[in-house]
Simulated assay, not measured.
Amino acid sequence: MSEKQAGLLSGWRGLVGRFSVAVISLTLVAIVLTGYLFTLIDDLRVNRVVNSVLDEQLAHLPNTALTSVELNPTTKGVSIIASVDTPQILEPYMAKVIEEHLSAQLGQPVQLFMRCKVTKVISATGSTNIRPYLNLDGKVSHVQLTPPMALLQQAEQIAREALAGQDYLHLDDISLVELDSGPVLVMAIQSPREPSAERVENFQKFLQERLQNSNIQVGIRRISTSEVSAKGPVILGAAHYGALDEGQRQIQAQIESLLTRSIMDKSNFYVQAIDAAPAGESWIVRGLVAGPNVLSPADIKALQDAVKRELNQKVDLKILSRVELEVGEEGYQSPPIR
């Protein structure tokens, strides 16, 4: 082999060597990128499946929105934290159902944690519009709200409208129970007084008319509450927090004092609370009284006449009169306010 041929062969060997290193390097990079690409595709698939299952399950709930999802791979599968805006804390069984759906779709064990942020969604007075479910992108989901959940959402809107002018009533929560006889809406309210069956019936008819469903039934679950200001137990908010001038304050004190003395002049009667608030040219007065018997309509008229006679003030007096006393060896005492 000539010297020229040997040099040419050596050059080719060097070139091939350099290309071999480059090819090997590119192969290694391709393997790494391919692995990363597969991981990325798998992560995207997992994200898509998780979001799809959560949307499908949560879209059936009223006033609920998925706000964020956190995925954390573990040695045993995947841990998921789903944050949702919801009108009430989701029940553990619901999280279990969603968790099982996720595990079946992903083909691996799933630990699901639901982070619930309690929110309430209302619309304008007179409206029964339903806000659709919003997915993680803030877009309206194609999954339709089920009829029971739509009914629940509309009923809550109407109930809040109806109670808007009732200062002493507050709607805490509303739930739906499906029975063979039809839907039953159970409403938890805060109120110092037990609602009468007549008022519940009237509200039930009102709901039936607004929702055009005569099968709806209403149940009221009362949470007993009491409110006390520096003046005392609150019966009429206007008597405690109203913008009364000095003259009105004096008349208020005189009316309340006269009625308290007149009632407690009766043997073993106790005035637990009494509130007077101006209403135009007259006064509204409400009170809580406990005693050995109930005050009669004649007693109420006599008390109103006494205020008119002694203070020259016209009053509309109504008393919640209870037959109740606390009894001890020392005698009778006023029972606890409830």
Results as ranks from 00 to 15, higher is better:
Glu3Cys: 01
Lys4Ile: 12
Gly7Ser: 11
Arg13Ser: 13
Gly14Ser: 15
Arg18Asn: 11
Arg18Asp: 09
Phe19His: 11
Phe19Asn: 13
Ile24Val: 14
Thr27Tyr: 07
Thr27Cys: 12
Ala30Gln: 11
Ile31Met: 14
Ile31Val: 15
Val32Thr: 13
Val32Gln: 02
Thr34Gln: 09
Gly35Lys: 00
Tyr36Met: 09
Thr39Tyr: 15
Ile41Met: 11
Asn47His: 10
Val49Ile: 15
Leu54Gly: 00
Asp55His: 00
Asp55Val: 08
Asn63Lys: 02
Ala65Gly: 06
Thr67Gln: 09
Thr67Lys: 07
Thr67Asp: 02
Ser68Asp: 15
Leu71Cys: 05
Lys76Ala: 15
Val78His: 07
Ser79Asp: 14
Ile80Asn: 05
Val84Trp: 06
Gln88Asn: 07
Ile89Leu: 13
Met94Cys: 03
Glu100His: 13
Leu102Arg: 01
Leu102Cys: 00
Ser103Gly: 03
Gln108Gly: 01
Gln108Phe: 01
Leu112Trp: 02
Asn129Arg: 10
Asn135Arg: 11
Leu136Glu: 11
Asp137Ser: 13
Lys139Pro: 00
Lys139Phe: 05
Pro147Leu: 13
Pro148Tyr: 03
Met149Gly: 09
Gln153Tyr: 10
Ala159Ser: 05
Ala159Phe: 08
Ala162His: 14
Leu163Trp: 06
Ala164His: 10
Gln166Gly: 00
Gln166Tyr: 10
Glu178Asn: 15
Leu185Lys: 07
Val186Glu: 07
Met187Gly: 04
Met187Ser: 03
Ala188Lys: 13
Ile189Asp: 00
Ile189Pro: 00
Gln190Glu: 15
Gln190Met: 12
Ser191Ala: 10
Ser191Ile: 00
Ser196Asn: 03
Ala197Asn: 11
Arg199Thr: 03
Glu201Gly: 00
Glu201Phe: 09
Gln204Cys: 11
Lys205Asn: 09
Leu207Thr: 02
Leu207Lys: 08
Asn213Met: 03
Arg221His: 15
Ser224Met: 12
Glu227His: 12
Gly232Ile: 04
Ile235Cys: 05
Leu236Ala: 05
Gly237Met: 04
Gly237Ser: 10
Gly237Phe: 10
Ala239Lys: 08
Tyr241Asp: 01
Ala243Tyr: 03
Asp245Met: 08
Asp245Leu: 08
Arg249Ile: 08
Ala253Cys: 02
Glu256Arg: 05
Ser257Gln: 11
Ser257Thr: 07
Ser257Pro: 01
Leu258Val: 14
Ser262Leu: 01
Ser262Asn: 07
Tyr270Met: 05
Ile274Arg: 04
Ala277His: 02
Ala279Pro: 06
Gly280Thr: 04
Val285Cys: 06
Arg286His: 04
Leu288Ala: 08
Ala290His: 11
Ala290Arg: 08
Gly291Ala: 06
Ser296Gln: 12
Ala298Asn: 14
Leu303Trp: 05
Gln304Asn: 07
Leu311Thr: 02
Asn312Trp: 01
Val315Phe: 08
Asp316Gly: 09
Ile319Trp: 02
Val323Glu: 14
Glu324Pro: 01
Val327Leu: 06
Glu329Lys: 14
Glu330Thr: 14
Gly331Glu: 03
